[in-house]
Design a protein around this nucleic acid. Sequence first.
DNA 1: AAGGCGGGGGG
DNA 2: CCCCCAGCCTT
Length: 381
Amino acid sequence: MKSPTRRSKKSPETQPILADAADLPEKLPQLLLPWFDRHQRKLPWRQTQDPYAIWLSETMLQQTQVVTALPYYHRFLKRFPTVQALAAAPLQEVLKSWSGLGYYRRARHLHEAAKAICENFRGIVPGTAAELVTLPGVGRYTAGAVASFAFNECTPIVDCNVARVLCRLLNWPVDPTAPQAAKALWQVAHQIVPADRPGAFNHALMELGATVCVPRAPQCLICPAQQCCQSCAAGTQQDIPLRKEKPATPIVKRAVFVLRHEGRVLLMQRPKNCIWEELWEFPALPDLSHFNSRTGLADVLREQLGLEVVPDRWRGRLSHQLTHRAMRYRIWRGVAVRGIERVLLPPCETGRYQAWRWLENLADVPVGTVTHKIATLARLD
DNA sequence: AAGGCGGGGGG
DNA sequence: CCCCCAGCCTT
């Protein structure tokens, strides 16, 4: 192990973490910033200085890829152009703009945070990572991103791209999501973020991870940081970062009912504290496969929903893969002929449906992607 | 420290 | 059918 020839002025107490790469804080910005200026993708949130827009983009980009978030970003910003507009809007409107994007707690937190900004920060997005991180839904990554991108604060960020780049630069064969490794990576990031153009440097680090230092088959030949990359020198890029094995995802079977009455369709609002929390969907029951006949189906709906239904001949199936479970839907269709003005609320997974509505248009309530898919399958659109 | 929380893309 | 991606919060 080489001994460091030079010590950074920053955080001397944590300096040993870079003992093998003491020149990284000096060299990396010199290599990455010119590369970034030439090669960065022109993304809309990089063309603005509006902290609100940058905060929104960083929230949407959590666990979500750029191409997925892009259309939502434009729509959301048009619908809620300012913190004040967002804070003043009803939560259901905010969730409707988030419909299909997933991780709906992000939208709830965003809304809560907008209200907090109006109450505690006079409607102005706070300019330091320390203040930002106090907002709901804003963790150290998002706080650092907004502070460095919008306010040029010299503060680091570590997302999965940065973590992968740093692990490879330092030839650390670790799982970056493990708490100890994450702590070390934040220390490293803190030591290398330059006082000059910290936002551009953070962008550059992420851009490198997204476009060159990619998870599989990193393009080391064209990498601007190749000369200070220890895993490239050692030939260990493919094995870094370490991936932990994933548990098997359970299969959840649900029977879904697309029930119509005079041009409207029945939707129910899911409970709190569950997946798709308080979003709306076609009523669904555990698929126990005991209503295979149409008469059995009518009995179940009379009992569970209090509805007299004439079932359809049509039926559909749909699989929907989530990170932690695999959904299997069997879809039934029918026309409600009695009981439509007083529908019963059946149990829904862990809780119970909170509300029901006969809707002419799915866009009137926030829904998940699965509900859109089911509507399409059942030819409702 | 571990688990919950969506959805999209590709093989 | 499988694989990949990946912050924040709660417990």
